[in-house]
Nucleic acid binder design. Structure first.
Lengths: 220, 220
DNA sequence: CTTTTGTTTTTTGTATACAATATACATTAA
DNA sequence: TTAATGTATATTGTATACAAAAAACAAAAG
């Protein structure tokens, strides 16, 4: 049998979702700006149907507000947004870490990912760091044994912002330390420690983002 | 000016969502059963478009699994489902309670709702209990100040199962006690207590459901 | 009989058409 | 002028039409 790689055509609604979500996070829309189905459909050269579906996904993920018979409103990606977003993410990630620590599944991949991060010379490139960070968290989501929790955290992940805010070297090493401690908690089945450490870790990310947001404000 | 009540036509996708969600929770579909867009559309006498939207909502809420170019699969509403569902709900509700306790908003409505529950003679009718219970939790969601958290918890609420499992009088009084304690925590700004108490409260609900599921299994 | 290949049927993904609601503008009355 | 009403226009909600993929089935080759 000849090996093959599955050619998967991602459905249009997903592709539009991703594009729009990134655009919103990157601030390509003004806060509170109204966007219409038809406008977006024309912009991306597709029909309104998949765009409408994408709108509903984005609304469920908290990036748009839908109004009956009216155009959608783009949520403001500001301090308030990040506070709410990370408040939720902190407890969900914490619970995932708890579940991973409680699980008897094979945890060698988590160790492997961490080793990969440890042996990379600092400062990593932005792409490398993003990739490592994402792999680390995703591995914990898998290990937690709660597929729904995995799905929720996946939907909450905002690739563009989450780590573009981590340029400095000591921040990267702080993350590595934090992750190292989590690996220990999870391997030693210390659920409560994993929960607390992960919660603090995520709140740390929030504080970092808030700091950067604040600096951005002072410049302007 | 003559007072009026807004006539709001709920969009079809929402109505279909609710109907299907209830049907799934009530076990009207077999676990793992395949359901097709066209079948459901015909069954409810609507076109495929709103049904398709409803499917995507239900998939995001964890009640269906969608496969590209194939029919959807109904998730099994079993012990595994409830464990995962309540694991998530417990931390989210706990965080909401935390936020409500931290908030400086007016909390008189929560007190009012609790008084309403306290003064009703036990055992309440199922409808009364459901209504009180829902009002109580919803009020905390509002008070927590995190609209996104509010939305997530709303989507997770499964009206049919959550309280149909509460027929006995001492269970109702246990819930009332639990709620009374939460009201105190929240009014006294005791965030950590509110978090822990709410977490335990929700896990209590889970255990109750698991017990009932177990009894049902023995009968069969 | 089993496996493979080709054809038909069904079902989904996307585009378009139509109906209902909301917005913008113009017209009229005060 | 200002407020109110009517009409035109645009946008959304829903239904239908068409294209592509999957499933079911039949026929042919081994």
């Amino acid at each position: 049998m000849i090996p093959y790689t599955k050619i998967e055509a991602t459905p249009l609604n997903e592709r539009i979702s991703t594009l729009l979500k990134d655009a919103i996070i990157e601030g390509q829309f003004k806060a509170g700006e109204e966007i219409s189905l038809t406008a977006i459909a024309e912009r991306y050269g597709v029909s309104r149907t998949p765009v409408r579906e994408a709108f509903q996904h984005l609304a469920k993920d908290g990036f748009l507000t839908l109004r009956m018979n009216k155009s959608a409103i783009v949520v403001a990606i500001d301090e308030h947004f990040f506070r709410n977003h990370y408040e939720i993410r902190s407890v969900l990630e914490a619970q995932a870490a708890y579940g991973a620590a409680a699980s008897d599944a094979d945890k060698s991949e988590l160790v492997r990912i961490q080793e990969l991060g440890e042996k990379t010379k600092l400062p990593m490139t932005l792409d490398d760091f993003r990739s490592y960070n994402m792999m680390f968290h995703r591995c914990i989501w898998r290990l937690c044994g709660n597929e729904r929790l995995h799905q929720l955290l996946s939907d909450m992940w905002v690739s563009s912002y989450s780590s573009s805010a981590l340029p400095e070297i000591h921040r990267q090493s702080r993350t590595l330390n934090s992750h190292r401690r989590l690996v220990n908690d999870i391997i030693n089945h210390d659920c409560d420690a994993a929960f607390e450490h992960m919660k603090r870790h995520i709140i740390g990310s929030l504080n970092n983002i808030l700091k950067i947001l604040d600096e951005g404000k002072k410049e302007a």
